[in-house]
């Protein structure tokens, strides 16, 4: 089923959907950007068609709806930990294919790893349906095609936005009723088939190669460039790491909550245990750890895909202009050098 809606009809659709779903989409927040007089685009509840930012990629990923920067796990008193409550209303997320694919990756960790299902992820994920936003081409940091994340079939609705309105494809019958007697039109979404940027992920299946790569001088560059701020992992579509901490409410020191807060392997202290030295004590160590997770370790554990969806948000957010695609290409060069060296032995 396909429909073509003008702006007014699109607003009416959004109003009708909002009765049954909490609708999240990329939204512009004026003057909250990194530099003065710049905006930030991130996921938030939307009520009007014009609130939806479809023209450019959001600065922050759709994962923030499912795995917010911080959330309460338990409320406690002296003698009880009471579980926090999940959402009651179903959720509709407007997202590009990379962000939808990113959820399949987050789910491998949150809803599978080690046979444990994370209640806080799963109780939201169960409520989520996706409305795919046809991607109008991304930007010069995107490389979804290289990562195979440019396409998806995991959506209930597909939207193609324009200044005049939106074309819609309905693939999930649960949504048919919102379109009533509107005339049907032909619309099948298309996917980005080529990015400006192309990344070749190096073959790291050889243990000896990986070992040599870990101590390769290429990582040293990051000791002077990376300031270990963690902005890249906060912006990442797939990063999942968090730390739990207890907070007490100011007015009553006996009650409070156990909270989960996003954390980053790029920040010093991520692996530090009380009374022990850090294992990864330099920016170079931490960059190596992140890059190998995204482009080898995750896939080695879970199988089908790499952890990176090629959204380019880390490159976009890095204050030191460190590019993930350039870094992977440097890894490829180092791997070629290592393989040539091993072959000579």
């Amino acid at each position: 089923m396909g429909y073509t809606l003008n702006r007014q009809q699109a607003d009416a659709l959004l109003a009708a959907l909002s009765k049954d779903y909490t609708v999240y989409a990329p939204k512009r927040f004026l003057n909250q950007g990194r530099y003065s007089a710049t905006d930030v685009i991130r996921y938030a509840e939307v009520e009007r068609f014009e609130d939806i930012v479809w023209q450019t990629k959001s600065d922050y990923p759709a994962k923030e709806v499912l795995t917010p920067i911080q959330q309460a796990l338990f409320y406690f008193t002296e003698d009880e930990y009471r579980e926090s409550k999940g959402p009651k209303k179903p959720i509709l997320i407007l997202a590009r294919p990379c962000d939808i694919n990113a959820q399949h990756i987050q789910a491998k960790i949150y809803a599978g790893n080690g046979g444990y299902t994370d209640l806080y992820y799963e109780r939201v994920r169960e409520m989520v349906k996706f409305a795919m936003m046809e991607c109008c081409g991304g930007d010069d940091t995107c490389f979804c095609v290289s990562m195979g994340t440019n396409k998806t079939s995991d959506y209930s609705l597909a939207f193609k936005f324009s200044d005049d309105g939106v074309q819609v494809q309905v693939t999930d019958n649960a949504f048919a009723s919102y379109f009533g007697d509107l005339p049907q039109t032909d619309y099948t979404p298309s996917f980005v088939e080529e990015n400006e940027l192309k990344v070749t992920v190096p073959d790291l299946s050889d243990k000896e190669v990986r070992k040599a790569l870990k101590s390769h001088p290429m990582w040293q560059e990051f000791n002077s460039r990376c300031i270990s701020c963690g902005a890249c992992t906060v912006a990442c579509s797939t990063c999942t790491c968090f730390t739990t901490r207890d907070v007490i409410y100011g007015d009553n020191p006996e009650v409070g909550e156990r909270r989960r807060v996003t954390s980053s392997c790029q920040i010093a202290g991520f692996d530090q245990m009380a009374g022990q030295r850090e294992f990864r004590s330099t920016a170079a160590d931490r960059m190596r750890y992140k890059v190998l997770h995204k482009f080898h370790d995750y896939k080695a554990r879970f199988g089908d895909s790499h952890m990176c969806v090629g959204c380019g948000r880390c490159t976009h957010r890095c204050p030191e202009l460190i590019s993930i695609s350039a870094t992977v290409n440097k890894v490829s060069a180092a791997v070629n050098e290592i393989k040539a060296g091993l072959a000579q032995k």
């Binding site: 960790i109 444990y116 994370d118 790491c241 730390t243 954390s263 692996d271 022990q276 294992f279």
Partner: peptide, 24 residues
């Protein structure tokens, strides 16, 4: 092994080394 752990159930990432989770 002992490593930094926040969750002990393979979610928080603190204990991960390569593709191995020390907690799991």
């Amino acid at each position: 092994f002992e490593r930094k752990m926040s969750c002990a159930v393979g979610k928080c990432g603190h204990c991960r080394i390569d593709e191995t989770y020390v907690c799991l």
